[in-house]
Simulated assay, not measured.
Amino acid sequence: MFEPFTTTGIGSMPHTEVLSACELILKYFDIPFWPQMPKYSVNEQMIAQFCEGFPGITFESDKVYIKKNDELITEWLSNYHDEMLSPVSEQFAIGLYSMQRLIKNEKLKLFKGQITGPVTFTLSLKDDEGKLIYFDETLRELSLMHLKAKVKWQIEFLKTFAENVIIFIDEPILQAVSTSAYISVEQSEAMRLIKEIVSFIKSFDVKVGIHCCGRTDWKEVLSLDIDILSFDAFSFFDFFKIYSDEISEFLSRSGYIAWGFIPTTDDLNALSDEEIIERAVRKTEEISKNLHLINKNSLLTPSCGMGSLDVSSSQRVCELLKKLKNRLVNE
């Protein structure tokens, strides 16, 4: 499906100059993606970006929440169907439209999009009483339907300039599910929500990845019908490798691991290029001793989005990713 150690990104970029972000992506990444630009606009933050069109959604300065209106909710639910499209406008995803304009009439072989996952979405967005909408069963289901309509529109949009599409479902909050922070969130329900959107996306002949930048129950995640598992391998490699049996089974089903070996945190400034690359090479060598398909079924990414970095640091991450790929391919 992919060449060994193919590179792609997670989503967010630190730029306020949109064209610069797009050009950097096209220059450095084997699989380009559209940039989410939280420093350009608050509308580009990972929850706000996919809220547009949600019944009762309210934007107040840098706050976004649901103003509950039962009539609006009932009307929306009665009109929903799996063919529904919910566009993401340029006001909420300028990087997506800028990338399309930059590519113009070309047809890329492969392109990556992304969407906030239903667990992170519902455990981050609140109603006007300050209650997380996950704990309202109606709003939880509505959120899943809403995200389906968003991702269906995105897939159709991306297919106008890409022959093949990958969608990453971003679920950073999975690392907190079943911890004391979200003790009342059942793992089985979180997995049900993700399974539903994975199945929906795959019905459009699209490859699906899940990205979680923390530590979570990888046994559960690896059992999902996903094509790619993306995680922060710089910080959580040792925890992840415990699941060697599950990883082996996932690889045998033609699954790919996207290793986030290049840090997007303060560790980036604390270490030299060579130290970062050597760490990644050692970890790859270690895990490939027992999991022989790893070298064939691996992608490379930054550890998470680059939105919190400065522009020069994001350039360094891109350069490091390219250096690491060259090193591993030529080992």
Rank of each mutant, 00 (worst) to 15 (best):
D273M: 02
N330W: 06
K107Y: 07
L96I: 09
E44G: 04
K68F: 10
F236A: 08
K241W: 03
T8P: 05
N105M: 00
Q91I: 02
L139W: 07
I155N: 09
K219W: 02
E106P: 02
L139R: 04
T216M: 10
I277S: 08
W153R: 07
K241R: 09
M13G: 01
K325N: 01
S178D: 11
S244D: 12
S252V: 01
H292D: 12
F2V: 04
T284L: 14
A176E: 12
S272R: 11
N330E: 15
I201Q: 10
F135L: 08
E246C: 05
I287K: 08
R279F: 06
L144S: 09
Y182C: 01
A149G: 06
S61V: 09
N330D: 13
K296H: 12
K152G: 03
F121I: 01
K104P: 03
K67I: 05
H146W: 02
R282Q: 15
D310V: 00
V281D: 09
E285P: 04
S180Q: 13
V208M: 02
T264C: 06
E83M: 09
Q315D: 10
A270E: 15
L251S: 05
V165G: 05
F5Y: 15
L19N: 13
D205C: 09
L77D: 12
V151G: 06
V18E: 07
D70S: 14
P32G: 00
E3I: 04
S184L: 13
S203I: 07
V88E: 06
D70K: 14
E246R: 06
V221E: 02
A280T: 01
V221Y: 06
E17K: 15
E60Y: 14
S235N: 14
C212G: 04
L299G: 01
E286Q: 13
V42D: 09
M1E: 14
I25V: 06
K283Q: 15
V42H: 12
R253F: 01
I201M: 03
T264S: 02
A190Q: 11
A176G: 02
A48P: 07
S89F: 06
I228W: 11
R215N: 13
S184P: 04
S124M: 01
E278Q: 13
S235Y: 09
L108K: 11
N43F: 12
R279L: 08
Q36H: 07
E196T: 08
E52D: 10
F237T: 07
V177H: 11
D245N: 15
G113H: 01
F161Q: 11
L102K: 15
W153C: 08
L123G: 00
G95D: 07
D310T: 05
K131T: 12
S203Q: 12
D128A: 07
E17M: 08
